[in-house]
Design a protein around this nucleic acid. Structure first.
Length: 357
DNA sequence: CAAACGTGGTG
DNA sequence: TCACCAAGTTT
């Protein structure tokens, strides 16, 4: 007991709410199907959870469909080419997820006979699976009573218990609450119920307290401070960095691209050759001998921890031109959608700005 | 452990 | 326009 209601009260209120309001999602096995004995596919649960890290359901849906159409099983994914997976992930962000996705699939295929471990600890040992994802997959796919802690759970619990400590200092306290409240029955549905509640009712701004299944036990609502919780430490201002990108088109339509190093920003992704991105003004660093055109245009893009102003240089070169950096990709196989968004923006802006156009 | 790591939607 | 925010993990 705490604050006047049982530890079982939140789950008791949330599960019926979930049974009525659960959204149909491509990776989700609904309450009715579960009741009928159907089990979720651990591969699809895992893939969805990786994609959903720091990413909205709306952004994930189409990517999830394309991945599962192309690679229906973890074994199929394990056999994929690195470049194919990175290209399919392009635009979704946090590209270390895609690199670890492949490492994880290959570890499951090679070390676990193509079958995901069915415990939190076993899952936690795989690349790209941290505390949240291990608990989520264990609960959702394997019906383990694992305490799932994500941004939604933090927000819901901070409000229900009126936790005033700012994040991230409040995490241990919130985790202790989450562990106490996780039910032994239907832990996967409970986890998804809390996350759905956080995504659709107990939202960061303007929470819909009037229709919340937890309204009767929510201390923040009683105090009139739901929208102010969880409190958070102030964030640092983002600096602005500058750079130059060089977009080279061959007369036969091929374009000059580089595969970026595996570690660091946009690691493992294709991109236009260019300068480093720094706060100081960049020095020219052309990847090939050419007559450069400055279109007077720049890409503005914001990453997690800095703003970028990327100036463009354009050139058209003959078929026998030899680059100092990068490789030409034939027009027939070049897909702007295979580029990370900042690089695709550069292509979009450059298209129509070439000198001959 | 603080910082690095993307992107698109929203108010 | 711009800061905030989303089903976090790794180093």
């Amino acid at each position: 007991m705490r604050d006047g209601f049982s530890d079982r009260a939140p789950a008791a209120a949330l599960l019926p709410w979930y049974d009525r309001h659960a959204r149909a999602l491509p990776w989700r096995t609904g309450p009715e199907a579960l009741a009928a004995g159907e089990r979720p596919d651990p591969y699809r649960v895992w893939l969805s959870e990786i994609m959903l890290q720091q990413t909205t359901v709306a952004a994930v849906k189409d990517y999830f469909r394309r991945f599962t159409d192309r690679w229906p099983t973890v074994t199929a994914l394990a056999g994929a080419e690195d470049a194919a997976v990175m290209a399919e992930w392009a635009g979704l962000g946090y590209y270390a997820r895609a690199r670890n996705l492949l490492k994880c699939a290959r570890a499951v295929a090679a070390d676990h006979g193509g079958v995901f471990p069915d415990t939190e600890d076993g899952l936690r040992a795989l690349p790209g699976i941290g505390p949240y994802t291990a608990a989520a997959v264990a609960a959702i796919a394997f019906d383990r009573p694992a305490a799932v802690m994500d941004g939604n759970v933090e927000r819901v619990l901070a409000r229900v218990f009126a936790v005033q400590t700012p994040l991230p200092a409040a995490k241990p306290e919130l985790r202790a609450l989450a562990e106490r409240l996780t039910p032994a029955t239907r832990p996967g549905c409970y986890a998804q119920a809390v996350m759905d509640l956080g995504a659709t009712v107990c939202t960061p701004k303007s929470p819909a307290c009037g229709i919340c299944p937890l309204m009767g036990m929510c201390r923040a609502r009683a105090l009139g401070i739901a929208a102010e919780l969880p409190r958070k430490a102030p964030k640092k201002a983002k600096p602005t960095r500058q750079g130059i990108a060089y977009l080279v088109r061959r007369t036969d339509g091929a374009v000059l691209l580089e595969t970026r190093p595996d570690s660091g920003l946009l690691g493992g992704m294709l991109g236009w050759p260019g300068t480093v991105w720094a706060e100081d003004a960049p020095q020219e660093a052309a990847p090939i001998d050419a007559a450069w055109h400055d279109p007077g245009l720049e890409v503005r893009h914001t990453f997690t921890h800095f703003h970028l102003r990327l100036a463009l240089r354009l050139a058209t070169v003959p078929p026998d031109a030899t680059p100092e950096r990068g490789e030409f990709h034939p027009r027939a196989t070049f897909r702007p959608a295979s580029l990370p968004t900042v690089m695709r923006k550069a292509w979009d802006i450059a298209s129509g700005a070439w000198p001959e156009d």
